[in-house]
């Protein structure tokens, strides 16, 4: 994949911004040392949704294959951990990674079937696939505990969950960035813009799509795995919860699809917004949520990141100087 000369300056900027992101996220190592309880729990949940949004972004934002069933990988990860810990007494951390691997393998296999289907057909098929897995989780009681769910040994480890999920978020962000800068990223964007054309130029679209699908599934699986040992109780309805997919999509769209920063900003802002609304308006927060979803899409369909760029540029035009480097 030839690199364009123009991209060089941008690359430097991206590198610096990545370092800044890393720095900011590293700062989040501190809170659990000085604080415990609600705020840590809230931050951890924000990280989880953000990591999920970022993982969704890798397949759907980059390649344009909108997966509505991405929560299936969260569920696979959660159940892998549930089964490994309760039936085979695995260590929870190792199990989480294995949960990610299980999702990865499942995605490779399912991708062979699903990724041949395009557009809205793909979106709904992935949703249906997730529902099939849920039915399996409900029925294979010897393995999954059926509707009774799986009760993991109580450990209630908030701090561990916080760090594990922060690490997942950092990793998925780094991978999302690396993919975007690599030839794989170019291939995925080419597929998004016009798959047939991309194939004519010799891009092996199947390979890239499946790889992106599997990588993205891995991180969703790890997040699901961590969630399982954190809440200590999973059942088919909470592990395969379709609202999770909507959270991922909405967070990514909110921030800006296809960018690395988009899902991060979207995830933080959206999850926080939900929390604030729901703490302050217990009865009507869902009404406000629905309305704000509509309003955001109506006025900033490109996402917050794109709009911020425009604002900053506008400020530059009217003469407000912002130092280029910090």
């Amino acid at each position: 994949m030839p690199k364009l000369g123009l991209a060089v300056g941008r690359e430097g900027a991206m590198k610096r911004s990545l370092m800044l992101i890393a720095l900011a996220l590293t700062l989040f190592l501190i809170p659990p040392i000085v604080e415990k309880g609600y705020y840590i729990n809230l931050l951890a949940i924000i990280f989880m949704y953000t990591a999920l949004a970022q993982s969704w972004n890798i397949i759907s934002g980059y390649s344009g294959y909108w997966s509505f069933g991405h929560y299936m990988f969260f569920g696979i990860g959660a159940y892998a951990v549930g089964i490994l810990v309760t039936k085979l007494s695995f260590d929870a951390y190792l199990a989480s990674v294995l949960g990610g691997l299980a999702s990865f393998l499942a995605a490779v296999f399912l991708g062979l079937i699903l990724l041949r289907i395009k557009g809205p057909y793909f979106a709904i098929s992935s949703l249906v696939m997730a529902e099939i897995l849920k039915v399996i989780a409900i029925n294979e009681e010897w393995l999954t505990g059926g509707g009774n769910g799986l009760i993991l040994p109580p450990r209630y480890a908030l701090r561990e969950f916080y760090y594990a999920i922060l690490l997942t978020l950092l990793a998925v962000t780094a991978i999302a960035y690396a993919i975007k800068r690599s030839s794989m990223g170019y291939a995925l964007f080419a597929i998004r813009d016009d798959e047939t054309a991309a194939e004519t130029y010799g891009i092996n679209s199947t390979k890239y799509k499946i790889l992106a699908f599997a990588i993205s599934a891995f991180f969703a699986g790890v997040a699901g795995g961590c969630f399982a040992w954190f809440v200590t109780y999973i059942d088919p309805y909470s592990a395969f919860d379709s609202t999770l997919a909507l959270m991922m999509i909405v967070s990514a769209v909110f921030g800006g699809i296809g960018t690395v920063m988009g899902p991060i900003i979207g995830g933080f802002v959206f999850t926080l917004l939900m929390e604030v609304l729901w703490v302050s308006f217990p009865y009507v927060y869902l009404i406000i949520l629905g309305a704000s979803l509509i309003l955001v899409m109506r006025f900033i369909p490109d996402g917050i990141v794109e709009r911020l760029v425009q604002i900053v540029q506008l400020m530059g035009k009217v003469g407000i100087k912002i130092p280029a480097r910090i």
């Binding site: 769209v253 009507v284 009404i287 629905g290 309305a291 509509i294 899409m297 369909p301």
Partner: peptide, 30 residues
């Protein structure tokens, strides 16, 4: 109508109508 001609038209309308569904269901509930 405001989204006609946009690149992600189908995706955007899906998310917007999802928002509408949440809105209507919860107004009814309220």
């Amino acid at each position: 109508k405001p989204f006609f001609g946009m690149r992600y038209f189908r995706a955007i309308t899906l998310v917007v109508t999802y928002g509408l569904a949440i809105l209507l269901i919860n107004i009814t509930r309220y």
